[in-house]
Design a protein around this nucleic acid. Structure first.
Lengths: 114, 114
DNA sequence: TTGACATGCAACCATTCAGTTGCATATCTA
DNA sequence: TAGATATGCAACTGAATGGTTGCATGTCAA
């Protein structure tokens, strides 16, 4: 969970995911070609993406081919975002109820009914 | 975008969001009470959450009340996750087509059709 | 005004991190 | 075999980070 968010919190890594999204099976060298850093730098980023299970690798001779794995996103992140969407709906409902009953504003100091 | 993911990549900050999700309007002192660190430490985390626009603050005399703001999540993150969900559907479709035409397996060495 | 409370600001420290450099290993090709 | 290619491993460095301590500012209450 922390790993997934941390992996996504870097533009370089998001760019790598974008490129694997457009074309799967790229090797490390291919991914490193367009990057503004050393091959080892890219390798470290990919290691982080693999640790977060966002990228899966597959060996083909001396070539390591990389593929995007969207499962951690659709699973964990979705659950988190959905949770906050509920919060947004709650806020919306509360806002609506205030519109319908403006005297509710006075209750701002009292604790909210869970 | 980077700010949002980075803000979520820390368990302490996710816990703060959880608590604001359960009960909005908490002050810094209240948030710092249960935390395993100094008030200043919590203040730094909150500053990061505010920079990512995940938390909004509102002054009430000498008290600073904090509220959860789910908008950055539902907006930016949703777009990202949806994009990868499309990738997952593509992968599923390709897998299905291979099931229907097993000879396609031989094409593994050739480049894939876009 | 005085004192307690809530917060902010700044310096500091130990740790982590991103990226580089250098070298080692393994695979393909001639 | 030799040489080129693809990758991995380890050490190093400057910068960022997480958290602390100390002090300053502003607000409430007596």
């Amino acid at each position: 969970m922390t790993d997934v968010f941390h992996a996504l919190a870097d533009p370089t890594r998001r760019d790598l995911l974008d490129r694997l999204f457009l074309k799967g099976g790229l090797t490390l060298s291919e991914l490193a070609e367009g990057a503004p850093m050393t091959r080892q730098g890219v390798a470290k980023h990919i290691a982080i993406l693999e640790a977060a299970n966002l990228v899966t690798a597959e060996w083909e001779g001396r070539n390591k081919r990389h593929f995007l794995n969207p499962v951690p996103l659709t699973g964990i992140v979705h659950r988190w975002v959905g949770k906050f969407e509920d919060a947004r709906l709650d806020a919306l409902a509360e806002f609506k109820s205030r519109l319908e009953d403006p005297t509710d504003m006075d209750k701002k100091d009292t604790k909210r009914h869970g």
